[in-house]
Design a protein around this nucleic acid. Structure first.
Lengths: 202, 202, 202, 202
DNA sequence: CATGAATGAGTATTCATTCAT
DNA sequence: AATGAATGAATACTCATTCAT
């Protein structure tokens, strides 16, 4: 972890962007440091001026990809918690969509999260997912208290299902809709249907 | 691909089982042919008597993992298509659960599906998912025709959401519930809620 | 550390011999595994079939170079301990001389022994020297008891001086007499003079 | 080699001192230019303002370590040549001892002297040793002429043995007595014994 | 069939050296 | 003079694959 400066940060971003592209194309294991350096237009050795190792670079990238909307992760005291929830999930979806043809990186990340190994990638992605789950559960609990959901709602399970729907749709998009301009399921729409099924008026 | 014989098939199965364990533990890239051979109790070179390459072995494994209930994949003329759909998804879930501590393999597979490269793994997993999607859509269409779902239902989108829910829950399980004995969302329950939200009586 | 077999041992010897030549030429750090493999006429990767690492190979080599006369290291109950001592040192000298133009390896080894690092090379060489020192001291002590040396002789110091003379001459040989056919000091002659100076009749 | 000025010389000394410590710790190959610069408290690039290369720095260091008492190296017309010899060797010993925990550097140097390669280190150390040998031989020859040693003394061989004893003791010290407060053989004492063995009254 | 020794291309990482600031 | 970012060659080690036995 080296110190920062305007110039440093710029270079680091260059490298993270290049890494995003290369990791998305080749996967975390398939990508070589050389190819990332190439993609960024710097020499192989220069990568190590900005990151301690390939793994550390990948770890930073994970945070970078999922933390664009960290600011919103606070379960603010908003009067309509379910709307807040929909927005959060839509944001997650939008973030991935914004990666365009490089969205495949999230699948690689989730794949790594399954590794027994406790590398930076796996830990990072698991933490991101945990935080999302916690936020969603909190919001659902609030909705239940406000009477928007039945008393007997199991908030934890509901949160799991909601996140599953969100991530499942993202996964599907990446797996199938790379090229074709097919019609898409929007995360928000699906979630509304789901919560309607639970008894909410949304 | 070599021809088959009772003995061959046995050996192949041994290797596929070993590969499942090793790939689940180390990922497709992290696993070495040597470790698979070790796990199966055969010599390194012997792997190549049964599979053309590491990639081909992995490709076979993909089919093997997801096609245990291929027999059921026919959208038979069953009177209750939604129940059939729930059963299908529950089967997918059960299949993964049956892998126990090796379930992580499905995350690795999905991760690979994102690779630009058209390797056997990616193609295999995409095909499996396509088939599932097609079956689900067919069943939903039937349900719509039978009046179990509103006329205006967009069957394609509904199918996508359903599969997303199913796969998303599987992913979540693998990512989070490795150690903890937490309560689980059952795929079938979540789907019922979802379809209820769409107007079905389930 | 892999198991042995006649063929294995042969190959290992090939590699140790090649390593001796290359290490002698380039030093332990300057030598690359590739060059050793080349010298031995095998592929780079094959080195690792016989040794766990470059360091382990070097460690084996250290033992190999200095352990040719291990059989003699027992301070046998011989009636003339000082003669025994001279023979031991002459053997050490002869062993190094037998390395011919590759004798420089012992200087590299001694150099490594000075490294703070506790690698296999350093530990190996220090152990070898310790054993030699112990043997010499034992023999001198015996000589003192037999009256071949004055009562007040400090055996430990005498042993140190004897080994220093032996090793110092070896070092000198390697440093200077590589090419020229100069006249040489024989270890045994010098030791006789030294012990004569201590009061022995030798 | 750059020209000198008071400021330059100061910086150079700083760097040489730092290099001594780092080389002693890590060996010539194990030490990086960066670590030397760090140790000296200057930037990596600055090293090259004072030395042409890492090798050249190391070469300078060799001279620096062994030439502290160059002033005394003149075989002056002293009446007691053997005492002069003892003093010279004791000085060599003292110089190394004065390096304290960094004395290991001399082993690294001697190690390098064995390299086939004719780098500055090897040449430097060989030259230093040659000069010492020449001085010692001259003194012994004088002693023989003065009747302090038998007529038939082979001065060249005697000189070799003397230097071997001196260097051998230094090597032993570094190899063994790093931690332990063991009793030490003093070079001068050992030399007296040796020359006594040759027939001198010392 | 089965083995495992042999191969050599491929990978992450280090480091001496240069040079623009 | 002094810096430290940038370079790219070099290196230890891994591993899929082949093939002689």
């Amino acid at each position: 972890m080296k110190l920062s400066s305007p110039k440093r940060d710029l270079r680091q971003r260059q490298l993270l962007d290049a890494a995003l592209r290369v990791f998305a194309r080749d996967g975390f294991d398939g990508a070589s440091v050389a190819s990332i350096a190439d993609e960024a237009g710097v020499a192989k050795g220069s990568v190590y001026l900005y990151f301690d190792s390939k793994e550390s670079l990948a770890g930073e990238l994970v945070r970078d990809v999922f933390t664009h909307n960290d600011a919103e992760i606070e379960p603010s005291m908003e009067p309509k918690p379910l709307e807040r929830l929909f927005r959060f999930c839509a944001n997650q979806e939008a973030r991935v969509l914004s990666l365009g043809e490089f969205a495949a990186i999230v699948l690689h990340m989730w794949g790594h999260a399954g590794k027994r190994g406790n590398d930076l990638i796996a830990r990072g992605i698991r933490q991101v997912a945990s935080e999302a789950l916690f936020l969603i559960e909190t919001l659902i609990e609030r909705a239940r208290v406000l009477g928007e959901l039945p008393r007997e709602t199991d908030c934890r399970l509901a949160a799991r299902a909601a996140l599953a729907l969100c991530y499942g749709l993202i996964q599907q998009r990446v797996t199938f809709e790379r090229n074709e301009g097919q019609q898409l399921v929007h995360c928000e729409d699906a979630l509304r249907i789901y919560f309607r099924g639970m008894g909410a008026k949304v």
